[in-house]
Design a protein around this nucleic acid. Structure first.
Lengths: 155, 155
DNA sequence: CAGATTTACATGCATTTGCAAATATCATTG
DNA sequence: CAATGATATTTGCAAATGCATGTAAATCTG
């Protein structure tokens, strides 16, 4: 932010060459579609994200789950209330640290995720329709680098 | 979704290879940082997005602006109320269609955007820190293809 | 060209969100 | 080892969000 005179102007770049804009636009639509499909399954976005995350790492501490699910702690806390009430996840006190709570997916929760996952795969395929596999892999590799650049947590 | 037996399982892919997850995670953090900086300038995310969009296309109809800014119509309507009150944008009735309202940025609005833009550029540079220019360009090209795949509007 | 549809935008209202504070537990330090 | 500070989670509350609806103007249709 020192040499302002070399800053490109937005008008020159154009919104459609500004990566964050494109990504917001893409994810805005992706998430909107996702949300509608989830609603049909009785899930909200945060709840669906919890199930998806638990399908990969079961039993995380809530704070970590908040990172995985890209959800505010307070929002997550309430989503977990609902999921627990519905019997899709289970809260369990951490034996090492009694401040912490670990979240486990239940069989019902896993079943719910199984009905949700095909929608996610389908939506992802739609994103990359017509894009060569090679390009897709390069794209994901760059995404991983970007995430590494900005992540503040250790995973 | 016909040949379900070929569906990869999320556990196998891993969340960190699932592009939508990575993009949500990246934009979640990007937007959070952006939001904090904007708050310091007295702007919310939707308001900042309006100013950024108007810096590129001035005088759009509100419905189009909603697409550009990736914002719900009702949310946008209220953001415009605030921006207009603050004198950063101006609503103007469309002469052709008196249902429509066109939005124009004011000098004060342009000044506000000018103080905001360096933050956006800086944040974008942070994303791509250490990533070769060639890769960055390929990445943006793929983003554009993805957007083309999912966009329902004509721009 | 009257009546029925569609489109543009604003707004009422219920829900969701997120910040900040509260609570409880752990860690550190003098 | 008491005291201070950090960490994990929940919750109160005000603000933001989004759906559904309202109003007004344009478009379509028979």
């Amino acid at each position: 932010m020192s040499d302002d005179e070399t800053l490109p102007r937005l008008g020159e770049i154009g919104l459609t060459n500004f990566a964050p804009y494109l990504m917001n636009r893409i994810m805005g639509r992706y998430n909107a579609g996702f949300r509608d499909e989830m609603a049909a399954l009785g899930l909200t976005t945060p709840k669906a994200r919890v199930l998806a995350s638990l399908a990969v790492v079961d039993g995380p501490v809530i704070r970590d789950l908040a990172v995985y699910t890209v959800t505010e702690q307070s929002t997550l806390s309430r989503a977990l209330d609902q999921l627990a009430t519905e019997g899709l996840v289970r809260r369990e006190a951490d034996p090492q640290d009694s401040r912490a709570t670990r979240i486990f997916i239940t069989d019902a929760g896993r079943a719910a995720f199984d009905s949700l996952w095909p929608h996610m795969v389908e939506a992802e395929r739609n994103l990359f329709r017509g894009i060569p596999d090679k390009d897709r892999r390069a794209f994901v590799a760059t995404l991983q680098q970007i995430l590494a650049n900005i992540r503040k947590h250790e995973f």
